[in-house]
Amino acid sequence: MKKITTLFLTFLVISCQTNVKKEDLSKLNGYWEIKQVTLADGETKDYKVNETIDFFEVKDNAGFRQKVMPQFDGTFKTNGIKERLKIFTVDNSYFIECKTDYGKWNEEIITIEDSTLVLKNKQNLVYTYKKFKPFSLK
């Protein structure tokens, strides 16, 4: 029953969302943290703590995504590897084309808001991100 409820809620959330607009694409820039992954069968995996987050930098529909590790002093460590990105449209939907030396794939931008990003890949995995908030020991 839990799988049916999760599948229904995922469908409801995705189907009720507004279309991504061109002016929303600038919201992609910045630091994003995985909050949840919804599998093709509707099962979800929640992420409470992430060692790495995704940094996006896009200008004129091209840029990169890079995994970074936030540090307690507010800085970030990285291995220097960047995925090259291009944003394109198909039938009024926006997609991110990702490229590395090892492969190429596309992700559909389902939702992009100030604090929420939802991407869907070819395997129907839905990645829900939240805007990263730096650590605070104060």
Rank of each mutant, 00 (worst) to 15 (best):
residue 118 V to M: 06
residue 40 A to H: 13
residue 38 T to M: 09
residue 86 K to N: 12
residue 138 K to W: 11
residue 5 T to E: 12
residue 122 K to G: 03
residue 35 K to G: 00
residue 21 K to F: 10
residue 20 V to A: 02
residue 114 D to E: 15
residue 73 D to T: 07
residue 115 S to K: 15
residue 52 T to G: 06
residue 72 F to H: 12
residue 123 Q to C: 03
residue 38 T to W: 01
residue 52 T to Q: 05
residue 8 F to A: 13
residue 28 L to F: 00
residue 83 E to H: 13
residue 38 T to H: 10
residue 20 V to E: 03
residue 124 N to R: 11
residue 69 M to H: 11
residue 128 T to I: 04
residue 90 V to I: 15
residue 61 N to R: 08
residue 127 Y to I: 13
residue 28 L to D: 06
residue 49 V to R: 14
residue 9 L to H: 04
residue 104 K to R: 03
residue 49 V to I: 15
residue 87 I to F: 01
residue 133 K to R: 09
residue 67 K to S: 15
residue 109 I to C: 04
residue 65 R to K: 15
residue 35 K to H: 11
residue 130 K to W: 07
residue 12 L to Q: 03
residue 129 Y to R: 00
residue 44 T to C: 02
residue 113 E to C: 05
residue 75 T to L: 10
residue 5 T to D: 01
residue 37 V to G: 02
residue 63 G to W: 12
residue 57 E to T: 08
residue 22 K to N: 15
residue 100 T to G: 05
residue 78 T to C: 02
residue 124 N to C: 04
residue 92 N to W: 01
residue 23 E to K: 14
residue 135 F to R: 04
residue 18 T to W: 04
residue 46 D to H: 07
residue 84 R to A: 00
residue 84 R to E: 06
residue 85 L to V: 08
residue 79 N to M: 09
residue 17 Q to Y: 11
residue 53 I to V: 08
residue 95 F to D: 05
residue 86 K to P: 06
residue 27 K to L: 13
residue 137 L to V: 14
residue 19 N to C: 11
residue 77 K to M: 11
residue 132 F to E: 00
residue 116 T to F: 04
residue 26 S to D: 15
residue 97 E to T: 02
residue 77 K to D: 14
residue 101 D to Q: 14
residue 108 E to D: 03
residue 106 N to P: 07
residue 23 E to S: 14
residue 133 K to L: 10
residue 59 K to E: 14
residue 55 F to W: 07
residue 79 N to A: 11
residue 37 V to R: 02
residue 93 S to E: 15
residue 65 R to P: 04
residue 63 G to K: 13
residue 48 K to E: 14
residue 51 E to F: 09
residue 80 G to E: 01
residue 100 T to Q: 02
residue 16 C to T: 15
residue 118 V to Y: 05
residue 87 I to D: 05
residue 39 L to W: 11
residue 45 K to M: 08
residue 105 W to Q: 08
residue 137 L to G: 11
residue 96 I to G: 02
residue 71 Q to A: 01
residue 74 G to H: 02
residue 17 Q to E: 13
residue 63 G to A: 11
residue 122 K to T: 01
residue 6 T to G: 00
residue 81 I to G: 12
residue 73 D to V: 06
residue 6 T to R: 12
residue 56 F to C: 06
residue 97 E to M: 01
residue 105 W to E: 07
residue 71 Q to L: 11
residue 41 D to P: 00
